[in-house]
């Protein structure tokens, strides 16, 4: 591989891994990273996003996640509004099947009584599943269309970014994990009481004399819950997307490489169907299990 080719491969991967971000780029940073604009702008490269700091927003992540959620849950709502007690129609059958599946799982792992847990589980499963499923679209399809769209207005398609898998953005997975974590904390305090919950954190497993060790152990196990929840989903989706990008790179090689890329893409996509479902399911089940632990008054 020549240097030029390596460069384009790198560019290709970078391009695919850069978000469509809107943010405030401070004027003093532009010199540093060689930008041509500042203020409230769409980032032209990954460096700009990094320099926007916290006040940048990934428009692609937000757009696709909200679009998918809105489509799915408005469909569910439409079905729910027309839900009939008699023999259900096709759409209602499907929705009832999904709800029954979630309800069964929640009943299986959640022993307390909380009307909020099952809908939470449903939201997580459906939303994460759909966001993951964006991975099955050909990696170049939407970004290419997006680039073509902007090139109509004279933009350089190489500086127009779009990432279509919201769960391959750690912001999404950490946002969900943090919401779950706050819910767990809320119910821990509510069910066990402040004393009970703090006692659980400090007096186990070594009793009152092992207090520092207890705090370290329980603290780690508490904090590891949202972090593992978020990183597991993010890691799987990011890696999956990465492999699709690498397979897509093969298409630019020889004929043999292209053909084998086709086969690989098919195989990986089929395998990925399992992963996207499994990851959505794991996120849901672990959330339910953590909430169940928060609802248990005795250890």
């Amino acid at each position: 591989m020549s240097t030029a080719e390596t460069l384009t491969s790198q560019c290709y991967i970078h391009h695919h891994l850069t978000h469509l971000a809107l943010g405030w780029l401070p004027a003093d940073k532009t010199e540093l990273i060689g930008s041509h604009h500042h203020g409230l702008v769409l980032a032209a490269n990954a460096d700009e996003i990094a320099n926007m700091g916290f006040w940048a927003i990934h428009l692609d992540t937000m757009f696709f996640s909200i679009l998918l959620g809105w489509l799915a849950f408005s469909f569910f709502r439409k079905v729910a509004e027309r839900a009939i007690v008699g023999v259900p129609s096709g759409a209602q059958n499907f929705v009832e099947w999904v709800l029954d599946f979630i309800d069964e799982n929640v009943r299986g792992s959640f022993t307390g009584r909380n009307p909020m847990v099952a809908p939470l589980a449903l939201t997580i499963f459906v939303w994460v599943f759909l966001m993951n499923a964006m991975d099955l679209l050909p990696v170049d399809l939407l970004p290419w269309l997006w680039g073509q769209f902007w090139s109509l207005f004279g933009a350089n398609p190489h500086h127009v970014f779009l990432r279509v898998v919201p769960t391959a953005d750690p912001n999404t997975t950490f946002a969900m994990a943090l919401m779950v974590f706050f819910t767990v904390l809320y119910y821990s305090f509510k069910v066990k009481g402040v004393g009970g919950f703090l006692g659980e954190l400090t007096l186990q497993p070594f009793g009152v004399w092992g207090l520092p060790a207890n705090i370290i152990l329980e603290g780690i196990s508490l904090l590891s819950k949202p972090i593992s929840l978020a990183l597991r989903l993010f890691g799987n989706m990011y890696a999956g997307e990465m492999i699709f990008i690498l397979i897509a790179l093969m298409y630019s090689g020889s004929t043999v490489l292209s053909v084998s890329a086709g086969g690989l893409q098919l195989v990986w996509a089929l395998f990925h169907i399992l992963i996207i479902t499994l990851q959505a399911f794991i996120f849901m089940v672990l959330t339910v299990v953590y909430l169940d632990m928060a609802h248990q008054t005795h250890h």
Binding site: F54, H58, A175
Partner: peptide, 27 residues
């Protein structure tokens, strides 16, 4: 990069959970 997207996604998630709870699950 952790940024405003995190907050945005937290809000979206919360809204979807609330929506599902109110308009989907119960009926």
């Amino acid at each position: 990069n952790f940024n405003l997207t995190l907050i945005g996604q937290m809000i979206s998630f919360g809204v979807f959970v609330w929506f599902t709870m109110t308009y989907v699950w119960s009926p």
